[in-house]
Design a protein around this nucleic acid. Sequence first.
DNA 1: ATAGGGTTAG
Length: 654
Amino acid sequence: MGSRGLVPDSYLLPSAIKACAALKALKPGRQVHAFASVNGFGSDSVLMSSLVHMYLKCNRIEDAQKLFDGMCDRDVIVWSAMIAGYSRLGIVDRAKELFNEMRNAGVEPNLVSWNGMIAGFGNAGLYDEAVMLFREMISDGFLPDGSTVSCVLPGIGNMKDVLMGEQVHGYVIKQGLESDNFVLSALLDMYGRCGCASEMSRVFDEIDQTEIGSLNAYLTGLSRNGLVDTALEVFKKFKAREMELNVVTWTSIISSCSQNGKDMEALELFRDMQADGVEPNAVTIPSLIPACANISRLTHGKAIHCFSLRNGFFDDVYVSSALIGMYAKCGRIQLSRHCFDIMPSRNLVSWNAIMNGYAMHGKARETIEMFHMMLQKGQKPDSTTFTCVLHACTQNGLTEEGWHYFNNMSKEHNVKPKMEHYACMVTLLSRVGKLEEAYSIIKEMPFEPDACVWGALLSSCRVYNNLSLGEIAAEKLFVLEPDNPGNYILLSNIYASKGMWDEENRIRDMMKSKGLKKNPGYSWIEIGQRVHTLLSGDKSHPQMKEILEKSEKLSIEIKKSGYLPMTKSVLQDVEEQDKEQILCGHSEKLAVVLGLINTSPGQPLQVIKNLRICDDCHAVIKIISRLEGREIFVRDTNRFHHFKDGVCSCGDFW
DNA sequence: ATAGGGTTAG
């Protein structure tokens, strides 16, 4: 325009500024601002309003406020923009202040002003206040529109206020807002959060033309309600219909899988997503990383770490926190700490991630050290933080420290102990043999103990072979989770350890009549690009002959070092020699030996087991780590064991 | 002719 001798006027400039706002392009925005000032548009209220908006979109609230303060003609539009600006940042006090200032200035709020306020309270997590404002605007004579409804529904969902949600749903139908896609996805999300899966499905099925936002909200809602298989079905159906799936859709379905035990599926979907030409973003990554961690595939985890670095996602707090958790779960706690140390900024999630890592590795001193460091940095702990601290104490039998943090959490940090904290205390006390003290906590806790709490007591009763408390705990567990074979096994093992074979048989018969079988022990190990699964006592692995040969050789060496097979770990009524045989078939030993055969000397080995590692395997693997000069990482259901030079990181307490 | 608001993935 300039080169043709044309001069932009006060009608054209706002359009240019609007473009800057949409692109969040601060620099050209400032240039237009300068042009407007120089050319005498400084008192044009529409132009100034558009600049205020541009600065708000670019998160320059101070610049916006300065311009706003200098305006003489402020209408409801620019007031609303400022209110929404503060609201988006969660600065609700200031938003409310402006709302009142506006009224005092004789400018009446309109629908948009109210909507901006309500959105702000929702963003700040003040859901009940958002709902109160919603009621207030109605009594002020406003008819909420689709925008209002989609602002207020997330809050209703967060509070699980089904009744209010249904009222709003009714209002949506009455006002004919069901064709608004924003409203639909907000409704689906609300029902999903309230646990109303069937109502949610009804809403979804009635949609004429499904739009991507509603599909995404629906998939997340299904996953929230544990309906992963349905989510996958719906996902596939819409993919087959050649619907354009976006990064939210893919991230959502990947999360559903990794959060619900479908780790391989999550990894496959990540590949499909890229094949489909949808670029993962900083949200996709942390939803995928737990899948690698769960199956302990360090190779994949590292690949995703590299992917994050290449794509500039590493500075995202959630990405690096997820990596901290992944390395910890894959046994590489030093790498977790490294990720933590180089993070440019940290939040509660990052602190909890590193503390959880240390706790998982039984490093109580480091966990507690991080806890104090986090307090020192001014980060407030939450309930997860205390779970980590108490869990760490549990791993090291630190009863005094455990009591200290348990008592202080609500007193000093205003975090009320929940079920999991009581469960930690029960574990802590019963693991060190203070079974009666643990039982008295159970009796005194302010809510009905759940299966985790009783399960903690029962497994320690098994360790110390305490029959009377074991029977009490088992009786509760048989009611709480009648189909969990582990509880029957633990009680029958206590009977077996006392030679009470009649009782032992009675429990076995109970299991049989319920059609329950002992969960078979299995372990898996990643070798190169493959994961090998080994079942306890199973001889079907193609390399079984080599495994047995190597075991034979090792066993001679091991026995030379003075080791005796811990046949007391075998709780079956069989001969000593058979017991030795049974121990040799334990899946974790098979996995370790398979690893030794197939990797070059000195390479670390990585094994996961679906049950707790047994005493005998623990002792044997310690010796193997010394004989073979290998670091061996074994993750069982309870914790991490890092074997090196003949010792284990757990210090033989687990 | 020019300026304002919303949902869904951690």
